[in-house]
Design a binder for these strands. Structure first.
Length: 489
RNA sequence: GAGCCCGUAGCUCAGCCGGUAGAGCAUCUGACUUUUAAUCAGGAGGUCUCGGGUUCGAAUCCCGACGGGCUCACCA
């Protein structure tokens, strides 16, 4: 607890007062450093045990352990750890007095000479100690760290201080996103930003968050996808290759794989079709994996996954037929619905043929797709923004990439025929009228943009959070989001 | 939204066939001093998540609330 009666806090407040009484500012404005811990470690990699250097350095970081009554301090900065040796041979009386006022958790600056102890630990013989931020709350136990899952998410700052694996995971997320950006930039993609606040929530099938703009006195929706705006920019020719890495918001349940706000990469490339998106997906994910894990064979939850391209391309109907013996392409809507319901799909009478195929796929195939695979031949009924398959009007040129049974990527040859698009929206509006809350509403302005001419293009979306989970072997999406959505306490 | 499980000291955890709360780390006091989860001695720290109920007596059994985890549903 954090009230004034807390003796742990009281002890630290007492030390804070003592520091001030000595004329020291426990929260000074800066502390110029000569080095980070990791830099010293590499510079003196060859310094033998017992070796001394004459070099005076200045380092800063958080005290995470104190031994021998403060004689030894483990000082951690973002780069790593360095040991500090505090002894009256090097510290004057003032320094020793400050040492007494330092607690585990304090941020301190240290000046001193570098040596390696006889036991081989690179160490700074402190000649001066400066408190840079007095910590008023105790840190979790050093050996087990912070194990309470709820506290780790609610107080991520504490989690990051004491659990190195949390730092590693979120740093890998950063490296992953940087790798994606670098690769896309190298391929001539332009990064853009499109609105988070939408007047019409389109581009995906999902329930939106609703908010209100006071000056305009209108409701706005947090975007469920950036798709329609990105394609408007493609119409305008802002670039022939565009991408956005940003947040989407969906007002749906939480689970180990769902957070109400999540990050996606969406990109569009003119003059190519969805087959180009398959290769691009493989390249992007393979590069990201190499960047983050150092290789193409990863392990998730004990399952080895080989990300080496190329990945198989199989149609949804084909995979369903293989798993169930039923060829949905040979069934009409009613029979397909009945067949899917045999697998527990629970489809209503309004469900179309495409919904039935998708339900059968979800029930009997999806979970088994552990190794990377592009699933093609998506039904038109569930793909209102994708170009029709020229060989089968029930299907569209769309694929989803599955890894570990999860949808990681979703891509189409984008529908650019404004009349077809209007008809697709009409079908969606009908479904909406029939009670499908997630059917996509008609966006007149988007159709108008198409009427000006959207070049043929491929589009691709990749879920960054799930990809990060896979590449960091994280069991929950909350592990890869610094501040996941929680019920307020 | 439904089912199952969990909530004890700052942290990590015991205790749970009911008898009034314990350890380790952290903290405080002292000792020791080139340690690596330092060591040794001593001290302090808890309305056992909250509210009801059963009982002579509840951390323990029952009901409810709150918070969390997992599974399912929706979805990415």
């Amino acid at each position: 607890m954090t009230n004034g009666d807390d003796p742990l806090r009281a002890a630290r407040l007492g030390k804070l007062t003592s520091l001030r009484a000595r004329g020291l500012d426990p929260y000074p404005v800066n502390f110029p450093r000569s080095d980070e811990a990791a830099a010293l470690e590499s510079r003196y990699a060859d310094l033998p045990a017992g070796g001394e250097t004459g070099e005076r350095v200045r380092v800063a970081g958080r005290v995470l352990a104190m031994r021998n009554s403060g004689m030894f301090i483990d000082l951690h900065d973002a780069s790593g750890k360095i040991q500090v040796f505090n002894h009256k041979d090097y510290l004057d009386a003032d320094g020793l007095a400050v040492l007494k006022l330092i607690d585990i958790g304090d941020v301190i600056g240290v000046e001193g000479r570098v040596r390696r102890t006889p036991r081989g630990e690179l160490t700074i013989n402190a000649s001066a100690l400066t408190v840079l931020a007095k910590s008023l709350r105790p840190l979790p136990e050093k050996y087990h760290g912070l194990a309470d899952i709820e506290l780790r998410y609610r107080q991520r700052y504490v989690d990051l201080i004491v659990n190195p694996e949390s730092r590693t995971t979120l740093r890998r997320r950063s490296a992953l996103i940087a790798a994606l950006r670098r690769h896309l930039w190298a391929r001539g993609y332009v990064e853009v930003e499109t609105p988070m606040l939408h007047t019409i929530p389109g581009g995906a099938s999902a329930k939106p968050f609703i908010t209100h703009h006071n000056a305009l006195d209108i409701d706005l929706y947090l975007r469920i996808a950036p798709e329609l705006h990105l394609k408007r920019l493609l119409v305008g020719g802002l670039g022939d290759k565009l991408f956005e890495i940003n947040r989407c918001f969906r007002n749906e349940g939480l689970s180990p794989r769902h957070n109400p706000e999540f990050t996606s990469l969406e990109l569009y490339e003119a003059y190519v079709d969805y087959t180009a998106m398959m290769s691009l997906t493989e390249e992007l994910i393979a590069r990201a994996a190499e960047e983050v894990t150092g290789g193409l064979r990863i392990e998730y939850g004990g399952t080895v996954i080989d990300l080496t391209p190329p990945w198989p391309r199989r149609s949804m109907a084909e995979l369903v037929a293989e798993a169930t013996g039923i060829d949905f392409l040979a069934l009409d809507a009613g029979t397909a619905r009945a067949a899917a319901n045999e697998f527990g799909a629970g489809l209503s009478a309004e469900a179309k043929w495409g919904h039935a195929l998708e339900a059968a796929f979800a029930a009997r195939v999806e979970d088994r797709l552990l190794q990377p695979i592009h699933v093609t031949g998506f039904p038109r009924d569930i793909s209102p923004l994708a170009k029709a398959d020229p060989h089968d009007p029930r299907l569209v040129e769309r694929f989803e990439t599955y890894i570990y049974g999860w949808e990681i990527a979703n891509a189409f040859s984008e529908l650019n025929d404004p009349q077809d698009q209007r008809a697709r929206f009409a079908a969606q509006m009908q479904a909406r009228a029939a009670g499908d809350e997630e059917a996509q509403p008609l966006d007149e302005d988007y159709v108008a943009a198409l009427e000006f001419g959207l070049p043929p293009c491929g589009g691709l979306g990749i879920g960054i959070d799930r990809l990060t989970m896979l590449l960091t072997d994280s069991p929950s999406i909350r592990d890869v989001i610094a501040f996941p959505t929680l019920r307020p306490r």
